[in-house]
């Protein structure tokens, strides 16, 4: 009901903590770009709509990347918008490539950097075979971690590299139980066996990182949980574990649990209402939830508003998932 610590903060810190000035500044920029709107509706109305859209999280749609990543709320809103807009991709069980997901992201944010999509895809694909197909939910949860905790992960990557190179002497010490089995192997084999870094050491470094990190980082308790389950792990192993962690997803608050990802009755209803208005598209079968939760191949595709996408998808399947640049959004 009350969080008294906000009352004790100095004014400036309170405003900064909640990014009030960021939004006020942006509101003014938007106002200057839409001067004709204010002569029609008035300034108060303009600001009302602006701040309401910030509350609802629709303010990030079609905005520039620098704004989308400016605050944690913007990032969460973007993740939510991405999920809600392209949920049907997952529902139909379509698998897309990294480049295709990138195109979807660019529909919502035209200057979305490719590098970030690549990084997210690397989490799913464990850093190899970057042209593989990914399911919507795998990509979404990996993307969530990568996008929301971007700066944190950069620091984590640096720490990981540090441990990997600097602390190499440690990695030579092999636990006795496994050393017996593998003694005959060459040293190189042993090193590759011991992929990654020691989890406990890694956690120590991450703990202090979380303490002093000025950007958002995942709740330290969950990081600890992830790292205490294993002896050693690789960087991508760590990211995969983060992306699959329910607690982190919940704490972040942008997306539902993985099981509920395709479940959004209000949105389904809205979609159906819209589809009903399009002559020639109506297909009674799509309406029932049973039908829509089936694997894609049996679902009638006519009912989906993302028809162009499905066409490409079919072509893709024929060409055996190759990743020629598909212009699905041009049709």
């Amino acid at each position: 009901m009350l969080s008294p610590e906000r009352l004790a903060l100095p004014d400036y810190e309170y405003l900064a903590q909640r990014h009030v000035l960021t939004y006020m500044e942006d509101a003014v920029c938007q106002l200057l770009e839409n001067k004709e709107d204010i002569s029609q509706y008035g300034i108060a109305r303009f600001f009302t709509e602006y701040f309401n859209s910030v509350c609802q999280g629709t303010h990030i749609l079609f905005r520039e990347f620098s704004f989308i990543q400016a605050t944690p709320h913007n990032r969460a809103s973007f993740l939510r918008a991405f999920w809600r807009c392209f949920r049907t991709v997952g529902k139909n069980g379509d698998l897309l490539t990294m480049k295709e997901y990138h195109c979807l992201l660019q529909l919502l944010c035209p200057d979305f950097p490719l590098e970030l999509t690549q990084k997210a895809a690397r989490i799913v694909l464990m850093d190899d075979a970057m042209d593989c197909l990914m399911s919507f939910s795998d990509f979404l949860f990996a993307f969530q971690i990568q996008f929301y905790y971007s700066e944190f992960l950069d620091s984590v990557a640096a720490i990981y590299q540090d441990l990997l190179s600097g602390k190499n002497p440690n990695t030579v010490i092999v636990p006795t139980s496994s050393s017996g089995q593998h003694r005959q192997r060459p040293a190189l084999g042993e090193a590759s066996m011991l992929e990654g870094v020691e989890a406990a050491l890694f956690y120590q470094r991450l703990e202090s990182l979380c303490d002093r990190h000025k950007y958002s980082c995942p709740p330290p308790a969950f990081v600890k949980e992830v790292l205490s389950n294993v002896q050693r792990l690789t960087f991508y192993g760590f990211l995969v574990a983060l992306s699959k962690h329910h607690g982190i997803n919940q704490a972040l608050g942008a997306l539902p649990d993985k099981g509920d990802l395709m479940h959004d009755p209000a949105m389904d209803e809205e979609l159906e209402r819209l589809l009903a208005q399009v002559p020639g598209l109506v297909n009674p079968v799509t309406g029932s939830p049973e039908a829509s939760s089936l694997p894609s191949r049996t679902t009638p595709r006519v009912g989906s508003p993302w028809r162009p996408l499905h066409h490409t998808r079919k072509m893709d399947a024929e060409s055996d998932g190759s990743t020629e640049e598909t212009d699905e959004s041009e049709t």
């Binding site: 938007q30 839409n34 602006y50 629709t58 303010h59 749609l61 520039e64 918008a81 809600r84 949105m267």
Partner: peptide, 8 residues
């Protein structure tokens, strides 16, 4: 960059 509309 018009004012964002509600999601649907």
């Amino acid at each position: 960059a018009a004012l964002p509309a509600p999601l649907p």
